[in-house]
């Protein structure tokens, strides 16, 4: 019994210092100088622009990654073909590649000296240091989230229901709408929440390709760094607390969905 008490105490105390205090500290610093100071920092045009840009990126990335996740899960769970194992590995690779490496890869691909750089320059297409680059790198970093949740579920459920629907003459779209989607909806939502949260918080990869142009290509996490480097700590914490709130909401949704499944 004493071992039990000792271990629980150790777990609670270590978690207090490792997780709870850092979390509480963010809000303490963000609101430390009062609500008015917080409001002034959040409503600063550059921070508002960063919030807007981050939302735009998330709104573009999320539906594309949902579509990719469903397509990949359908392909891997419902068909057997040559190279299937390799494909699964490829889907998972972005989880193992550090976002900063992803950013460097994108720079070496689309940069002025990069693989496709000259071609883009000739046609006047701007990808780096603009929204397309931020979107692409965010897609790389968040691509496995939906597929990873939906795929194991689809494999576990098997395809009997869908095969029955085929024999009854249902079209592909009908099967998806009426059979597959209702079966995977919670896993899909779960993956989408994780994907959105990660897209909003992405820092390393975006910091390489965005160029961090104040009020133009600064996403909210980059704005946190910029304010921190400007020694505007209260401003940095105000921006950070917004991201923390989003993370906490995502976590709450995830916890509810965990129980749902």
């Amino acid at each position: 019994m004493t071992a039990r008490r000792l271990l629980i105490a150790a777990a609670l105390i270590s978690t207090l210092f490792l997780v709870v205090v850092p979390l509480a500290y963010i809000f303490s610093r963000a609101f430390g100088q009062g609500w008015a100071a917080y409001q002034a920092n959040i409503l600063h045009p550059d921070t508002l622009h960063a919030i807007w840009l981050t939302s735009v990126v998330a709104v573009i990335v999320l539906p594309i990654n949902i579509a990719f996740g469903i397509a990949a899960a359908w392909l891997v769970a419902r068909f057997r073909f040559w190279g299937r194992g390799l494909l699964v590995l490829l889907i998972e690779i972005p989880f193992s590649v550090s976002p900063i490496i992803a950013g460097i890869c994108y720079l070496l691909l689309y940069g002025r000296q990069g693989l496709l750089g000259p071609l883009l320059l000739e046609n006047g297409i701007q990808i780096l240091f603009a929204i397309p680059g931020i979107v692409l790198v965010t897609m790389f970093v968040t691509s496995p989230f939906v597929a990873r949740e939906v795929l194991p579920l689809m494999e576990a459920q098997g395809s009997e229901q869908e095969q029955a629907a085929v024999t009854l003459g249902a079209s592909g779209w009908q099967i998806f709408r009426r059979v597959t989607l209702p079966n995977i909806r919670w896993a899909l939502l779960y993956g989408a929440v994780l994907c959105a949260a990660r897209a909003v918080g992405e820092f390393g990869g975006v910091s390489v390709v965005s160029g961090s142009i104040r009020g133009q290509t600064n996403t909210l996490p980059l704005q946190v760094e910029l304010l921190f480097n400007d020694l505007n700590t209260v401003g940095a914490f105000a921006a950070a607390s917004t991201l923390t709130l989003i993370a906490l909401v995502a976590l709450a949704v995830k916890t509810v969905l965990d129980r749902q499944r």
């Binding site: 997780v19 820092f203 950070a240 993370a247 995502a250 916890t255």
Partner: peptide
Amino acid sequence: LDALMDIPFALPTAVAGLALSAL
């Protein structure tokens, strides 16, 4: 306590870095 375990993944790394460096 169980839910708290997911905080480090949910929190954007820049936010974690800011909080830790200030702490």
